[in-house]
C-alpha cells in the first residue's frame, strides 16, 4: 500500500495549505445541507402520529448524539497515532476534536432532556443510555482538562491520548445500551443494515442535518487544527511565508 499521501498530509506546512484550501468549501456545503435539513425537518415533514410536533427535536438531537460518538472515535484514532507513531499533527487533531465533541455531547444531552419532559414525563432518568452518554461528556472534559493541566505540549498530548484511547470503551456501550439493557430510551430508528423505522418523508431532512453537521464539525476541527499547527510551529519559516502570503 502506498502511504505517500498520508505522510505528505501529516507534514505541517502541507496540512496548512490543504486545510486553507478546502475548509471554506466544506463550510459552504455544511450550511447548504443544514438549511435543507431545517426547512425539510421543521416545516415540510409531517407531524408524528403519536408525539405530534414535539418529535421535530430529533433533527438536532440525533445528529448531535451521532456526532458525539463519531467525534470521540475520531479523537481515539488520533490518540492511537499520537501514542504509536508520535505524529505531531495527530496531537493537534486530538486536542482540536475534544471541544467540538464535548459541545455536541452537551447538545445531545440538553435536547434529550427537552424532549424527555413532554414525551416521557421526566427531564432525566438514570437509564443506561442517558448515564453512558453523560459519562462520555465527562471523558471529553477529562481529555481537555488533562491536556490543559500539563505545560509541555507533547507530554500533554500523550497523556490526553491515553485517556482518549482507553475511554473509547464507552462508545459501544453508549451505542448498544438500548439493546443490551431495558431502558426508557427507545432503540435506534436508523441502523446500518435494518430498514429505518422513521417514515421516508421525515428521513431525508434528518440525513441532511446529520451530513451537514458532520461537515460543519470537520471544518471546525480543521480550523482549530490549523491554529494549533501554526502556534506550535510559530518559529518555522513556512509559517511566516504562509501568513504573509495573500489570502484567498
Amino acid at each position: 500500500m502506498n502511504w505517500t499521501w498520508f505522510h505528505k498530509l501529516s507534514s505541517p506546512p502541507h496540512f496548512h495549505r490543504f486545510a486553507r484550501r478546502w475548509t471554506p468549501w466544506m463550510e459552504c456545503a455544511a450550511a447548504a445541507l443544514v438549511v435543507y435539513g431545517l426547512i425539510g425537518g421543521l416545516i415540510l415533514a409531517p407531524p408524528d402520529y403519536q408525539q405530534g410536533e414535539v418529535y421535530r427535536i430529533i433533527y438536532v438531537h440525533v445528529p448531535a448524539a451521532w456526532l458525539s460518538l463519531a467525534l470521540y472515535s475520531g479523537m481515539a484514532v488520533a490518540g492511537l497515532i499520537v501514542l504509536i507513531w508520535r505524529v505531531k499533527l495527530a496531537e493537534c487533531a486530538l486536542i482540536s476534536i475534544a471541544p467540538v465533541g464535548a459541545s455536541f455531547t452537551a447538545l445531545a444531552l440538553a435536547t434529550g432532556m427537552l424532549w424527555g419532559k413532554p414525551t416521557w414525563g421526566a427531564y432525566w432518568v438514570w437509564d443506561a443510555r442517558l448515564t453512558s452518554e453523560l459519562v462520555l461528556l465527562f471523558l471529553y472534559l477529562g481529555v481537555i482538562a488533562l491536556h490543559g493541566a500539563m505545560s509541555e505540549p507533547r507530554a500533554a498530548a500523550r497523556a490526553a491520548a491515553l485517556l482518549a484511547v482507553v475511554g473509547w470503551v464507552n462508545v459501544p456501550i453508549v451505542r448498544y445500551s438500548v439493546d443490551w439493557w431495558n431502558s426508557l430510551h427507545q432503540t435506534s430508528s436508523i441502523t446500518l443494515l435494518g430498514k429505518p423505522t422513521l417514515d421516508a418523508s421525515m428521513l431525508w431532512p434528518l440525513f441532511g442535518m446529520a451530513l451537514g453537521l458532520t461537515l460543519f464539525s470537520a471544518a471546525n476541527v480543521m480550523r482549530r487544527m490549523q491554529a494549533e499547527n501554526v502556534r506550535r510551529n510559530a518559529r518555522q519559516r513556512w509559517v511566516r511565508e504562509q501568513l504573509e502570503a495573500p489570502h484567498v
Binding site: D48, Y49, Q50, Y55, T119, A122, Q186, S189, L198
Partner: peptide
C-alpha cells in the same frame, strides 16, 4: 410515578391510520 416509553417508530398520522393495527 408513571413515565411514557415511546418506541422508535415515527410516521405521519395518515399513515398510522392506514396501518390501523389495534395499538400500533
Amino acid at each position: 410515578q408513571v413515565l411514557a416509553k415511546h418506541d422508535e417508530n415515527y410516521m405521519p398520522p395518515e399513515l398510522a391510520e392506514r396501518l390501523a393495527d389495534e395499538t400500533g
